[in-house]
Simulated scan of single mutants.
Amino acid sequence: MKDVDRLVHSRANILFLAAFSFGLWQFCWIGKDILSTTGGTLYLVMGGASAIGGLLWVVSCYFFHRFSKQVKQAKAYGALNDELTQQNRSKAFVFGYFVIFGLTWLLIPATDFWNFEVKFAVRVIATIGIILPFIYFAYLELKNDEGAE
């Protein structure tokens, strides 16, 4: 069982890395697009940070690939995809859905009060909708793993 516990922690860490790297990549890219008319140092910083985030995203994808091989070697697919894991995955998906839905509904009245480009807000909402389920699923997995010990 130690192998399965190690794999659960590894999956959670990879998900945290993936969420961080995807967020860094996308949020800095959005910031760079917003600052594209002004240019300057902050524009360059956003561009560099976006590139670093994109590279970290590639690294996290490699870690997912390596994790998949480790699961196959340990023959632990069944243990890592049990009912509790499926329930956690469903909770994370529903959580992400309601966050996207709620932020979209908040965006509608916000356009009446503030003047901004909606495409940037939609990109932020989409990025949040991708990141939060990763984080929530990893949190639930670690919380349940700690409770099992």
Rank of each mutant, 00 (worst) to 15 (best):
N88I: 10
E146D: 12
F64M: 13
G129I: 10
L7W: 08
A148D: 04
K91S: 12
W105A: 07
K72R: 11
L107P: 00
F93N: 11
Y77M: 09
K32I: 08
G47E: 03
F98N: 08
N81T: 15
K69A: 08
A148V: 02
Q73V: 09
Q87T: 10
C61E: 09
L142H: 03
G31H: 14
T104S: 12
F16L: 02
R11H: 05
N144A: 13
F116A: 03
I128N: 02
L55K: 04
F120S: 04
K119M: 08
L106N: 10
E117L: 10
T37L: 11
K32P: 08
E141C: 10
F93H: 09
N81R: 15
N115C: 13
I100Q: 11
L107V: 04
N13C: 11
E146L: 14
K75A: 15
T38R: 15
F95A: 13
V122Q: 09
I52R: 01
R66G: 10
E141M: 09
K72N: 13
F101L: 14
Y97S: 06
A51C: 07
N115V: 15
V71S: 08
I130P: 00
V8H: 07
V58P: 04
F27P: 07
F64A: 11
L35R: 14
N81Y: 14
